[in-house]
Design a protein around this nucleic acid. Sequence first.
DNA 1: TTGAAAGCGCTAACAC
DNA 2: GTGTTAGCGCTTTCAA
Lengths: 338, 338
Amino acid sequence: MTAPTDRPTLDQVAERAGVGRGTVSRVINGSPQVSEHTRRAVEEAVAELGYVPNLAARALVTRRTDAVALVISESEERVFSEPFFAGVVRGISAGVSAAGRQLVLALAAGEERPLERYLTPQHVDGVLLVSLHGDDPLPELLRTRGLPVVLGGRPPSGYGGAYIDVDNVGGAKAGVAHLVARGRKRIATISGPHDMGAGQDRLAGYRAALAAAGLDEDPALVVEGDFSEVSGLQAMRSLLACHPDLDAVFAANDLMAIGALRALREAGRQVPEDVAVVGFDDSPLSRVTEPPLSTVRQPVDEMGRGMAEMLLRLISGADGDTHEYAVLPTELVVRASS
Amino acid sequence: MTAPTDRPTLDQVAERAGVGRGTVSRVINGSPQVSEHTRRAVEEAVAELGYVPNLAARALVTRRTDAVALVISESEERVFSEPFFAGVVRGISAGVSAAGRQLVLALAAGEERPLERYLTPQHVDGVLLVSLHGDDPLPELLRTRGLPVVLGGRPPSGYGGAYIDVDNVGGAKAGVAHLVARGRKRIATISGPHDMGAGQDRLAGYRAALAAAGLDEDPALVVEGDFSEVSGLQAMRSLLACHPDLDAVFAANDLMAIGALRALREAGRQVPEDVAVVGFDDSPLSRVTEPPLSTVRQPVDEMGRGMAEMLLRLISGADGDTHEYAVLPTELVVRASS
DNA sequence: TTGAAAGCGCTAACAC
DNA sequence: GTGTTAGCGCTTTCAA
């Protein structure tokens, strides 16, 4: 029975195997420069002693950590209420652990300063950023530190690095076009925050679809929400109060669509006969409402996985093309409510 | 403009401030043994150089990492589809970051071996475990390694460490008692997996409530699910096929309750007039179904936060009472469907 | 192919 | 109070 805290070190393994310290290190790291014989001896000693390399020591000399950070610039509240993040994290987690690395999660609500200190090449090998607001300089800052960075979502201006986005414009266009095709004329929208790429792009898609259909855009039919259910509820209420003649709503995410549904029910409006609803960001929530919501599905899992893979490529890559990017397709899922 | 990779070291700060290396270290670590004057000088140098301590080096000598791991023994699929985890992670994340530590997330679907290697005192200061299955020996193993451990949920037999659980038995009892009070006589249950504490306890609560009401327990009215929506759907279908006379269902979580709702609708049964439904694990999902679900709410946030706090106490504590535990109360939330 | 030696950047024990 | 010193456990030249 060894003392719990005293884990065996490299030297102990070396002594046990009757070789030098360097040789053990080579075996551990899979160097081909070792004879089959000694390798076996070392591996045996490792097994017997239950040796596990000390990552801190290794990181100190290699200047790598085998860890990557995922920064979510959002309150915990939203991160977990919005199904979008679940999908992205799932994808990222899969991609990162498939590469044998550790994922360090950092929720950055508001204050980024402490985080900024943590995000250095000494602590993590790379950084994934999601749900950026406004023109956040953080990603570009990290890049100047020499840290590989991949963004999820449309990058802020001034950012010249890698990113993966989904086709928000196209998705919104498809959602609104669907409403148009169903004969709707007075189509309102509950948009996302104007300081976020996703919010801007979905609004742009809404406008493009109206224009394509030859419908006039009525600014009064556009209300800004913050992607939360209550904001959708409030937006829909005010929309109904001022424009009871509207016959359809495009909500920039599923949570707001659900809020809208509640406001509609509250006002005694029939869905979809009277007012049709289409949301964005398809999640389990969309299925359990009554009637179920038609939504635009974005490939969140693939987005996460893609981000992880891109980052790993940047990390191990010979500092190649750091401007890589991808835009994933979105897809309309039609259900009863429209 | 300094080279991006060459971050300043302690010695450079020391030189700049005109003091010794040890002094800088004391300032960084907030030792009171430093004169106001030199402290100021050092802080200035730190600011000017943009010095950030190298955590790997520090961890190497202090043998602490300031990181704690959260191990979720569940597939990514379930971790993110089940709102329970969102709440727990939110609570944990809040507690951990409030203590200035990093949370390292590890999803352990099935294979635990690689993880087991990672979870050593050299890599993390402590471990949080959630959603254990069967009699998993992992927590006890970690404890013998001298690693502080806190469990979420009822501990497996043989575990003698700290944990936080919620009152699953009491909650289930309350849910079923509510059904009884509404005059229901043939109350079925869709239970959780029998290899999980939560599954067992909620089933026990169901039984206790029936017994307390003087109702006979019919084994045929008990169907085992796996906490997923489809399992709830299938369970309800088979229940309806064999026992169309049932007048209420208690589902061991919200997802399965939603599945049950779908099966009921599919079969043309009226909810709650014909068949009343009560679920467990109140989440946003419960509110958006039609009719909304009555459910038993467990304080998931507090559970997470409590776990984090307990762990931090164990870590910094003088190795005091490691058998600490808490059982948090659950609460019935009555909505239209029962 | 392998051993020996030189640090990586930091903290802590010890002098002053 | 503060400087100096000795490692923490590892990788990586550099010789042999």
